[in-house]
Computed example of a mutant assay.
Amino acid sequence: MEKKSAARRIGIADVALMAGVSHATVSRVMNGSFTVDPAIAARVRSAAETLKYQPNPLGRSLALGKTETIGILVPDLANPMFQAVLRGLSIAAAQDGYRVLIADSSETSTEENILAAEARRRGDGVVLCAPRMSDAELNQLAPALQPMVLINRTASGDTPSLSVDYARGIQDLAEHLAGLGHRRLVFLSGPETSASNQLRLRGLRRFTRSHPDVELTILPCGVSFAAGQEAAAGVLATKASGVMAFNDLVAMGLLSGLHEHGAQVPGDISVTGFDDIPFAAYTSPPLTTAAVPLNELGEDAWHQLRELLRTPSPVTRNTVYRTRIQARGSTGPAPGYVEAGPSAEDPTTPIPATS
Rank of each mutant, 00 (worst) to 15 (best):
A93D: 06
A94N: 07
G71Q: 02
E137S: 11
V126E: 07
I72K: 04
S105A: 08
N139Q: 04
I114E: 11
I70L: 09
A136S: 15
N113C: 10
L128H: 00
C129T: 00
N113K: 07
S109C: 09
D124F: 12
I91E: 12
L64Q: 13
V74L: 00
V85T: 05
E68I: 11
M81P: 06
F82L: 05
L64V: 03
D96T: 02
E111G: 07
A117L: 08
D124H: 11
I72W: 05
E118H: 13
V127D: 00
L141A: 07
Q83A: 14
Q140C: 05
T110A: 12
E68T: 14
E107G: 01
S90V: 00
G97S: 11
I72C: 05
T67D: 09
D124L: 14
S90E: 08
T69V: 15
Y98K: 11
A136C: 05
A136Q: 14
P80N: 13
A93E: 05
Q140T: 11
A130D: 09
A94Y: 06
N139T: 04
P80R: 07
V126D: 07
T67K: 15
V85E: 00
E118G: 08
A92Y: 01
I72T: 02
G123S: 15
C129K: 00
P131N: 04
Q95K: 12
R99Q: 15
A78C: 12
L138A: 03
G71P: 04
G97H: 13
G71R: 03
L141H: 03
C129H: 01
L62D: 03
S106Q: 10
G123Q: 12
G65N: 08
A93K: 02
A116S: 07
D76Q: 14
T67I: 11
S106I: 04
S109N: 10
D76E: 12
N113V: 13
I70D: 06
C129F: 01
T67C: 13
E112C: 06
L64P: 04
G97I: 09
E112A: 07
L89K: 00
A130C: 06
S109P: 14
E118T: 15
D124E: 13
A63C: 07
R122Q: 13
L89W: 00
R120S: 05
L115W: 05
N79T: 06
S105W: 00
V85C: 02
I70K: 05
N79E: 06
K66V: 12
E112D: 02
A92Q: 06
L128I: 02
T110M: 06
L73Q: 08
V74T: 08
R120V: 01
T67M: 15
N113A: 15
M81S: 14
P80S: 11
A117I: 08
E111P: 00
G71T: 02
I114F: 10
D135F: 09
A119R: 06
E111S: 12
D104E: 04
A84N: 10
R99M: 14
A94M: 10
L62Y: 03
E137I: 08
E112P: 02
C129R: 01
E68V: 10
A103L: 03
A93L: 03
I114V: 14
A130V: 00
R99C: 13
L101W: 06
I114Y: 11
Q140D: 12
L89A: 01
I72A: 08
P131L: 02
V74I: 07
R87F: 08
A94P: 07
A78K: 14
L138I: 01
L64E: 09
R99S: 14
P75H: 02
R99H: 14
Y98A: 13
C129N: 01
